[in-house]
């Protein structure tokens, strides 16, 4: 593993100037050095999370973190919950299925309700693009976007960047192929912006029906043929193909998709010999990725992504609450 200097995540030197944002809504809002700052902060947590049994840090003690998930999620919700608890926050989960959203309450009313409960940080996932920003506008505390529609999933891009940096040492000149359903993917949108900002050469690889128009504007070069897109890639990032898009709507069938765009060992051989395989999960084994590749001990970074997810979310929760906690230079 390349040697990375780990700066202290202690109360900071340059303070708020390093991250002058109230919320974390979109990678598009962040400057490259702000992204790097979050990655450096997360590096500290990655180390401490690996450091034995006692992982607790009490810096968010007494603060309330609400995870408001209007769309189903297992791993992201769990990751945010663990991150909050490791920092000592009181974490409350609100799942849409059991919430008053089902009873017709508007999103703004829900936001006002959460706000009235004096949350100190709110993590939101919603099925509509822009919904998280809409809520963020109405609440007094920092909001973290845990995914809004096809728009953004910034912590996923950050955890992917951290995983890549740990494995590859940096981003400059790195070829990253983001493959699959780019059109409907917030993960792809966040990653394209993030990796391009950090200096990587980003490729978007998708069938034309699943490629957003003018994807170049997000910093990616489009490829319609998997083999061309994988040529010489350092990182192969697969995207999940949603079940409802599989049968005739955007692609003819899962098996044809697997034939043309599935990441098989043969296809992975087109990429660089040491190419890293990533997937934001949950995987459709045998559709976008074959099990041999997904479980490859050296090449697959999929479980490491999950691990870095906790570290990134701890860093984001810490950084965004520094102002409220009165950390010197951040208040």
């Amino acid at each position: 593993m390349p040697d990375i200097t780990v700066p202290s995540a202690s109360p900071d030197l340059a303070g708020r100037a390093l991250f002058p944002h109230r919320h974390l809504l979109s990678i598009a809002d962040l400057k490259p050095w702000e992204i790097r700052f979050l990655l450096d902060e997360a590096e500290h947590w990655a180390k401490s999370n690996r450091g034995g049994a006692r992982k607790h840090d009490d810096r968010l003690k007494g603060m309330t973190q609400i995870n408001a998930f209007f769309e189903n999620s297992t791993r992201t919700l769990l990751s945010f919950e663990i991150a909050g608890k490791r920092l000592g926050a009181d974490v409350v989960n609100m799942a849409a299925a059991t919430s008053s959203v089902k009873k017709g309450e508007t999103l703004i009313d829900t936001a006002m309700t959460l706000n009235a409960m004096a949350a100190d940080v709110i993590v939101i996932r919603h099925a509509s693009s822009g919904a998280v920003a809409l809520i963020a506008d109405k609440v007094d505390c920092p909001v973290l976007n845990a995914g809004d529609g096809w728009h953004q999933h910034p912590t996923q891009a950050l955890l992917d960047a951290l995983t890549i940096r740990r494995r590859k040492g940096g981003f400059e000149g790195l070829i990253v192929a983001i493959c699959g359903d780019v059109l409907h993917s917030r993960v792809a949108r966040s990653n394209m912006l993030c990796l391009a900002a950090l200096g990587a050469q980003v490729r978007a690889v998708a069938p034309p029906t699943l490629m957003p128009p003018e994807v170049e504007m997000l910093g990616a070069t489009p490829f319609h043929r998997m083999d061309e897109g994988l040529e010489g890639a350092d990182v192969v990032m697969m995207l999940r193909l949603q079940n409802e898009r599989m049968d005739g709507a955007f692609i003819p069938s899962p098996r044809e998709y697997h034939m043309l765009y599935g990441l098989t060992p043969e296809r992975l051989a087109i990429a660089k010999r040491d190419a890293l395989v990533m997937h934001p999960g949950p995987m459709n084994r045998g559709v976008e990725i074959s099990s041999v590749v997904a479980d490859h001990p050296d090449r697959s970074a999929i479980t490491e992504q999950v691990e870095m997810g906790v570290a990134i979310r701890m860093a984001c929760l810490d950084v965004l609450t520094r102002g409220a906690r009165g950390v010197e230079g951040w208040a």
């Binding site: 598009a28 693009s129 822009g130 809004d148 529609g149 096809w150 728009h151 953004q152 917030r186 949108r189 957003p212 128009p213 003018e214 994807v215 504007m217 997000l218």
Partner: peptide, 8 residues
């Protein structure tokens, strides 16, 4: 570009 950026 706008629709792509906003994911609409």
């Amino acid at each position: 570009e706008t629709a792509t950026r906003l994911g609409l």
